[in-house]
Design a protein around this nucleic acid. Structure first.
Length: 381
DNA sequence: TCATACTGAAGGAGGTATGA
DNA sequence: TCATACCTCCTTCAGTATGA
């Protein structure tokens, strides 16, 4: 196994979209994935943009100093697409290097640190092309590359499957909610005030260390809250297990950011962004019902329609949410819903925990790419 | 005194424009 | 083509005002 210069293994290419055949435009995010471009391309001549084909790489060297990482990704799409002309596009030119293996190397934190180190003298934080080419990469035998890629892919596939199961489970819970509480006409109507408490009183002293959840930990399409961290309490919303966190500010509310708290111990109090509304059930109401309510399109539309504020910082008032009109709920029906959805929410929690461990395993695998065989065996043992 | 609401400012992220 | 300068939108933070 030996280290080889990146520049010796790849060829930089600049195929322009001169015929205009490629119409899909992608950018690259800092997680090293292609994403739909956010650029305003009205009036822009896309024939000047660069074409990226399958197994070709694109990277953005402009902000490595700023971001402390190199946005780089490999296309696995079956079609050609275009990227900004400011990007570099390259492909592997040697048969003893797998593009997929190279992409794994680019995902290593150590690779990003190395790129960042090379930007040291550049006032704008850009990474020079020659510096990128000079980076050395450990290249094992092609067979070992295949094994490493296969291991990584199997973990990635498992994570993907778990995410798909979670999506289906959440959709099932939402369907149950809709079937039992939305899809019927009722003449007996009340308001949410009978069913929920907003921002329940919980006490944390300034300086206490507690689990903290920030806005970015909330997802727009899944209930699980990611990576809460321990932090000194200095104000903010406070919550406990089974509470639902609803983002109340523009554009987080419109985007649907909502989370279900299930990561604390019994009676533990966590805290989070001041821009959360904490919602808790009253009496016989299921906490899962609250989460499903917060994801319901009609309820969200009601919340969004009541946002007020200036300078683009519009918020919904918790007191307004309590005025939302709702059919009078049958307690037996709520109990049945709770029983059915408990299984779903527990399974989602389990799969989410599993995915966190699998993600850690992926990181471990990447960090071990540069470790020799002997050391690898020692780690495995 | 503490909690909540509001707002300005800063930072993050994904770019484009332009001159050498 | 490359390097530098800068843009723009979105998101979050943190300080201050207000209310309980």
């Amino acid at each position: 196994m030996s280290y080889r210069r990146l520049g010796d293994m790849v060829k930089f290419i600049s195929n322009k979209n001169t015929d205009g055949n490629a119409t899909v435009l992608f950018g690259i995010n800092i997680d090293k994935f292609f994403m739909p471009s956010v650029a305003n391309i009205i009036g822009v001549d896309l024939k000047k943009y660069k074409v990226v084909g399958k197994y070709q790489f694109a990277c953005n060297r402009m902000h490595v100093g700023r971001d402390e990482r190199l946005p780089i990704s490999m296309s696995t799409f079956d079609y050609d697409f275009i990227v900004s002309p400011a990007y570099d596009v390259f492909e592997v030119i040697t048969s003893d290097v797998l593009p997929e293996y190279l992409m794994l190397w680019f995902r290593r934190k150590e690779f990003d640190r190395q790129c960042w180190f090379y930007t040291d003298a550049d006032v704008r934080g850009g990474l020079h092309l020659e510096a990128l080419k000079s980076i050395e990469i450990k290249v094992p035998s092609i067979e070992e590359q295949r094994q490493i890629v296969a291991q990584y892919q199997s973990i990635a596939n498992k994570i993907k499957v778990n995410e798909q199961i979670c999506e289906k489970l959440e959709a099932t819970a939402q369907a149950l909610y809709k079937h039992w509480f939305v899809d019927f006409e009722s003449v007996n109507v009340t308001t949410l005030q009978d069913y929920i408490i907003t921002n329940p009183t919980l006490s944390l002293k300034k300086g206490d260390i507690a689990n903290y959840t920030e806005m970015s930990d909330l997802s727009a399409n899944k209930l699980s809250i990611t990576k809460p961290i321990k932090r000194e309490y200095n104000g903010g919303s406070r919550f406990q297990n089974d509470d639902t966190l609803l983002a109340r500010i523009t554009p987080c509310l419109e985007n649907g950011k909502t989370g279900f708290v299930n990561f604390l111990s019994n009676d533990e109090i966590g805290f989070g962004s001041t821009e959360f509304i904490v919602i808790r059930p009253k009496s016989f109401v299921s906490p899962f019902w609250i989460y499903c309510l917060c994801k319901d399109a009609d309820f969200r539309a009601f919340a969004i329609s009541s946002m007020i504020g200036s300078s683009g910082r519009q918020r919904v008032h918790e007191s307004y949410l309590l005025k939302y009109k709702y059919s009078i709920i049958n307690e037996d029906m709520m109990n049945k819903f709770h029983k059915s959805s408990t299984v779903i929410f527990e399974e989602v929690k389990l799969l989410n925990n599993q995915n966190q461990k699998l993600t850690q395993l992926q990181s471990l695998l990447l960090s071990r790419l540069a470790v020799g065989e002997e050391e690898k065996r020692k780690i495995t043992v």
